[in-house]
């Protein structure tokens, strides 16, 4: 049981970090970022290139993932989403754009990094073992702790800095924020960059454990969607809750339902449907946010 809980926590911390970026972008611009999973894969490959191929320390790889993805996110917002949002009749059009970007990033990743599964050497050796009741490699613990620290850092950023306050205002009411003198364009761009940065960071963190390959983008996006549906789209606490809940459910499901075959996600989806029938906006979402 302790093992299941620990696994769930570890998974949940990563998931929450992915969902945070997605929900941030969604709350600021009402854009469902299909390319989020691809951004995550891209971040993983950047860390892989820096650490495994150039032989630099892991932290350099992580930082360069974050920086590259943040710049990428800012450019995508400025040159792609902003003009399309301004011109199109229905705001769903951004979904086509996001899907196009997802394909584009897939193609870029394929051309730049190839299709092979890549990983970096373990950053810490050894396994934590508590009476055989709880076994966890140290690198997983480190990554889990780093992920939680990043989540805390992100919340602090949103709560206590000027940029964070501006973004929260934007998420609440774009028009009102603009009337209060918030530079909407600038903070949309910062928000998108921050969301992409988070995706890149998770990619960089996870490449040390699970490795990374081209095909991971889509499934990651789908998991992130599930998390923000559980928690409620566009709400930061919801994304964190959703991430941890999905992590726990996956961890428990994989253990308890293993005898029935690979039906964990089927069960999770069925329970999600029942849940949404009672609470369509998720745990903490605004109705029809």
């Amino acid at each position: 049981m302790e093992q299941i809980l620990a696994n769930g926590l570890y998974l949940g911390a990563q998931y929450a970090l992915i969902a945070l970026g997605l929900t941030l972008i969604f709350s600021l611009m009402n854009v469902l970022n299909f390319a989020h999973g691809q951004m995550y894969v891209f971040g993983g490959f950047v860390t892989y290139t820096v650490v495994a191929q150039w032989g630099l320390p892991f932290i350099v790889g992580l930082v360069s993932s974050a920086v590259i993805l943040a710049v990428m996110g800012a450019l995508i917002e400025k040159f792609l989403f902003r003009p399309v949002i301004r011109k199109s009749k229905r705001d769903e059009s951004t979904m086509l754009l996001a899907a196009g970007i997802a394909f584009f990033l897939d193609a870029v990743i394929l051309l730049l990094f190839g299709e092979k599964q890549r990983g970096v050497p373990k950053i810490v050796d050894g396994v934590f073992n508590w009476d055989m009741r709880l076994i966890m490699p140290y690198d997983r613990i480190l990554i889990g702790v780093l992920a939680i620290a990043l989540i805390v850092g992100f919340i602090a950023l949103m709560q206590y800095t000027k940029a964070g306050r501006a973004m929260r205002a934007l998420a609440q009411d774009r028009m009102a924020a603009q009337l209060m003198g918030v530079d909407v364009d600038r903070y949309s761009m910062i928000g998108f960059a921050l969301g992409a940065l988070l995706a890149g960071l998770v990619g960089g963190l996870l490449v040390t454990i699970t490795g990374i390959n081209l095909g991971m983008g889509g499934p990651t996006s789908i998991k992130a969607f599930m998390m923000i549906m559980i928690g409620g789209a566009g709400v930061i606490s919801g994304a964190i809750a959703g991430g941890f809940i999905l992590g726990m459910m996956e961890s428990i499901g994989l253990t308890v339902l293993a005898v029935y075959g690979d039906i964990t996600y089927l069960a999770i989806f069925a329970s999600l449907m029942v849940f949404l029938a009672f609470r369509p906006q998720g745990l903490m979402g605004k109705p029809w946010g």
Binding site: I222, F225, M229, A233, L272, M273, P280, W288
Partner: peptide
């Protein structure tokens, strides 16, 4: 909106 889009994707 996005909620429906996401759940159909799932």
């Amino acid at each position: 909106g996005v909620y429906f889009a996401m759940i159909t994707l799932v």
